[in-house]
Design a protein around this nucleic acid. Structure first.
Length: 256
DNA sequence: AAGCTTTGACCTATA
DNA sequence: TTATAGGTCAAAGCT
C-alpha cells in the first residue's frame, strides 16, 4: 500500500461521483438568508425509516441524481463502484420533513444512516475530514465533546471567502466518522484546484464542477467509511424555491 | 510565510 | 433565573 491512498482510490475509481454528493449538498442549499446565518436545527436522526417527500424527488431529478431517493442502494451506487463493500450497505435516507408549513421545507433535514453494522474496511477519519473529498476547502475551527454523543464533534468551515458553509463531523474514538452534518450551502462553485494529491485524478473541469454541485451522491460517500451508526445530516436552514438551481442563480448574480 | 489544527475559554440557546 | 449543552472564537503551535 505504498502510494495507494484512500484518496487515490477514490480518485481513480469514481471519486467523481463520490465528490459530487457533497458538492451538491454544499451547493444545494445556498445561503439565501438575507439576514445573517440561518438558524440551523439539529439534525439528529430519529430512527425512522424514511419516507421521502415528493419534493425531494423533484429536486433530485433536477440534480440528475436519482440515487438520493430512489432507493437505499442506488443511493450509494456511485460510490459502490469504488467501494465494493458498500454494495450491501443498507443505508436509508431519512427525510425528516417538518409539519406542513412554509418554513418546514426550509429546515428539512436529510440523514443518511447506516442501519446495520457490518465488517467494512474502515477508513481513518483523517482521510475524510481533511477536505472531505468534496473539492471544497474546509478549515477546522473547533472540536467539542457533546453529551448527546459519546464521540467528539469537529467543526469545519468552508475556506472560500464569504462562504458560510459549515459541516460538523462526529468521529468515534477509533477514528471512524459516525456522523456528518452539513450546514448552509456554498455560495460559490467548487474550486478548480483542490488540495488532494491529484495524480490527474483530483483535478476536474469547471464543467464537471458545476455539475457536481448538484449531485447528492457524496452524501453517502463520506459515510461509507463508517460502519457503525454512521449518518450524515444535511441541514438547510434556507432552502427555498431557489433550491432548484441556487448555484446557477448565485453565479449569475456574482457575475453581474 | 501561510494556512491549518488544536484547545481552552467564551457566547448563546434551550430546558 | 439558572444550569447545561452546543457552537464559535482566537491564540499558540505545527506542517
Amino acid at each position: 500500500m505504498s502510494s495507494t491512498s484512500f484518496t487515490d482510490l477514490l480518485a481513480s475509481s469514481g471519486v467523481d461521483s463520490y465528490e459530487q454528493d457533497e458538492d451538491f449538498l454544499g451547493g444545494f442549499y445556498p445561503e439565501s438568508t438575507g439576514s445573517g446565518l440561518p438558524k440551523f436545527k439539529t439534525s439528529q436522526p430519529s430512527p425512522l425509516p424514511i419516507s421521502q417527500p415528493s419534493r425531494n424527488f423533484a429536486f433530485s431529478e433536477l440534480l440528475d441524481s436519482p440515487l438520493l431517493l430512489s432507493s437505499s442502494h442506488s443511493l450509494i451506487s456511485p460510490t459502490t463502484g469504488a467501494f465494493p463493500f458498500q454494495s450491501d450497505f443498507p443505508w436509508q435516507i431519512q427525510s425528516q420533513p417538518q409539519p406542513p408549513n412554509a418554513v418546514s421545507a426550509l429546515q428539512e433535514t436529510y440523514v443518511v444512516q447506516d442501519l446495520q453494522k457490518k465488517p467494512v474496511p474502515k477508513v481513518p477519519s483523517y482521510m475524510v475530514s481533511r477536505n472531505s473529498n468534496d473539492g471544497y476547502g474546509w478549515r477546522k475551527y473547533g472540536q467539542k465533546q457533546v453529551k448527546k454523543s459519546e464521540n467528539p464533534r469537529s467543526y469545519f468551515k468552508c475556506t472560500y471567502p464569504n462562504c458560510v458553509s459549515k459541516k460538523i463531523v462526529e468521529t468515534a474514538s477509533d477514528g471512524q466518522i459516525t456522523e456528518i452534518i452539513y450546514k448552509g450551502g456554498h455560495n460559490h462553485p467548487k474550486p478548480e484546484f483542490t488540495k488532494r494529491p491529484s495524480s490527474g485524478s483530483g483535478a476536474s473541469s469547471s464543467a464537471a464542477n458545476a455539475r457536481r454541485m448538484f449531485n447528492p451522491s457524496s452524501v453517502v460517500s463520506e459515510t461509507h467509511d463508517q460502519s457503525e451508526n454512521s449518518s450524515i445530516s444535511f441541514d438547510y436552514g434556507d432552502v427555498d424555491e431557489e433550491k432548484e438551481q441556487p448555484e446557477i442563480k448565485r453565479l449569475k448574480r456574482e457575475g453581474e
